[in-house]
């Protein structure tokens, strides 16, 4: 027997035509003995008060967002090639700073000498990293990458400083880096403006394109076993060797900084790889 205290459930289904024949008949006979219910139902069948569409816009969308601001344009680069190229420049930066630590600071450098030495190290680092990350084909993204890479979050800069240790050239370098302004309330990272260090230095993509003959010793990358690397998985068959190598290099460089720059694996509908600090991605398109 139906619980008629809640006849409204049946009434709604009746009006919307969702009752089986049997239930419909039961409800119709219920209405015959309850004219007030029949009246309600008739009234709603005539016309049902329904809200019409009303557009309302949430005013603070950007504040809700968690990704890096669009102006950084990491996402526009997007593809593996772009990601790898961008990463290689970041790695280049790390490599450069790492190499600076090796400069014998007992030697007195004049500004010109220092500039030359840093340029050489920079080119060397850039070339070796670029070669490893198969970035040479990245013609179409060069400009994007160059403009993207000048935006380095504060964490990266300050971490690099602490990690490498303050040597004289770094002081020079830091003067050129405008301190980023981070508004704690908004939790947004503003881009850092990194001006060219030396007039004669080359951006990595330009260097790659120039085919300059650079024969200098290989830059040593910090060693780390792949087992310890965050986000790194050699066994993933969906990834090309180039991606794996890029992942390995980047992961090994950033492994000591895992707390500050969290590295994790990511996978989307058509891409897989590792993600650093939620905005640098190295990955493969997966069909």
């Amino acid at each position: 027997m139906y619980d008629w205290d809640h006849y409204e459930e049946l009434a709604l289904d009746y009006i919307e035509g969702n009752l089986s024949d049997e239930r419909r008949r039961t409800f119709e006979s219920f209405m015959e003995s309850h004219p007030e219910v029949a009246q309600e139902v008739r009234s709603l069948k005539e016309s049902m008060p329904v809200l019409s569409v009303d557009r309302v816009e949430f005013p603070d969308k950007e504040r809700l967002k968690r990704g890096v601001k669009r102006s950084l344009r990491w996402r526009q680069v997007g593809s593996f090639v772009g990601g790898a190229a961008a990463a290689s420049v970041v790695v280049g930066l790390f490599g450069l700073l790492g190499s600076l630590g090796r400069i014998d600071d007992s030697i007195e450098y004049g500004g010109q000498q220092l500039a030359e030495q840093i340029e050489v190290i920079y080119q060397e680092t850039a070339k070796s990293v670029a070669a490893e990350t198969e970035v040479a084909q990245a013609d179409d993204v060069k400009q994007d990458v160059v403009s993207d890479v000048i935006s380095v979050p504060e964490k990266v800069v300050s971490t690099v400083d602490t990690y490498v240790g303050a040597v004289t050239p770094l002081t020079t370098l830091n003067k050129r880096i405008e301190a980023p302004k981070v508004d704690k309330n908004q939790e947004e990272l503003n881009p850092v403006v990194l001006e060219p260090l030396f007039t004669d230095s080359y951006a990595v993509p330009d260097l790659i394109a120039s085919n300059r003959d650079i024969t200098l010793e290989q830059v040593e990358l910090p060693e780390a076993t792949t087992d310890e690397l965050p986000g790194y998985d050699d066994s993933d068959e969906g990834l090309t060797d180039g991606t794996k190598e890029a992942m390995r290099i980047l992961a090994s460089l950033l492994a000591p900084l895992d707390d500050l720059l969290p590295i994790k694996r990511y996978s989307t509908e058509n891409e897989r790889g590792i993600e650093i600090a939620s905005f640098i991605r190295i990955g493969n398109r997966v069909e």
């Binding site: 969308k61 967002k65 968690r66 990704g67 890096v68 990511y266 989307t268 939620s278």
Partner: peptide, 9 residues
């Protein structure tokens, strides 16, 4: 991911 979350926003 952050970008998927942003899309929800």
């Amino acid at each position: 991911t952050a970008s998927e979350y942003d899309r929800c926003v």
